[in-house]
């Protein structure tokens, strides 16, 4: 019985705080994306006018945890199958945050654009109960600045 009560409390806490954290995070992402709009990001490998530029590798990484509520909903969803909308926003947040951090590194290096951007998504934890559900995203690319 105590287990059930604890479970419901976690579910409620996860929902309230998880939703708040997500909203806040999205606001901050949108805000910082506006500030970093002058750094252009492309996934092409060919850089125009490469002869007059200097390039270097830039990376951005982030680890974001799933809240209890979302994990439970996703667990339920895995019984019936279908779109796990609970995790979609999580991955979206993580990818955009990683790209933002990559852009920040590019700005620190004085670059104006990032080319051949790649994203690598992973997790330290897989399956097993009591484990931590988290998504890790690593964004990297070649930042260039005029010579």
């Amino acid at each position: 019985m105590y287990d059930l009560i604890l479970f419901l409390i976690f579910l409620l806490l996860g929902y309230v705080f998880g939703q708040r954290a997500e909203k806040r995070h999205f606001r901050s992402i949108i805000e910082r994306e506006k500030q970093l709009r002058d750094i252009l990001v492309f996934s092409e490998r060919r850089i125009p006018d490469a002869e007059q530029l200097d390039g270097s590798l830039v990376c951005g990484s982030v680890v974001i945890s799933v809240d209890f509520f979302k994990r439970f909903v996703a667990g339920l969803r895995s019984l019936v199958g279908g779109r796990v909308s609970a995790y979609e926003s999580l991955l979206e947040r993580a990818r955009r945050e990683a790209i933002l951090r990559m852009k920040e590194e590019a700005r620190r290096g004085g670059a104006q654009s990032v080319w051949n951007t790649r994203l690598e998504t992973a997790s330290i934890y897989k399956g097993a109960q009591q484990s931590i559900g988290a998504v890790e995203v690593l964004a990297y690319g070649t930042a260039v600045k005029p010579r």
Binding site: L13, V62, V63, E97, I124
Partner: peptide, 28 residues
């Protein structure tokens, strides 16, 4: 790999959600 000190906070974050700063540092 995860380590105990980081896990303590990560365990809490796992209920509330949010960025696991310790793990981001580890990844970096």
């Amino acid at each position: 790999s995860k380590h105990a000190g980081r896990d303590l906070m990560a365990g809490l974050k796992n209920i509330f959600g949010g960025e696991l700063t310790g793990y981001t540092e580890l990844l970096t």
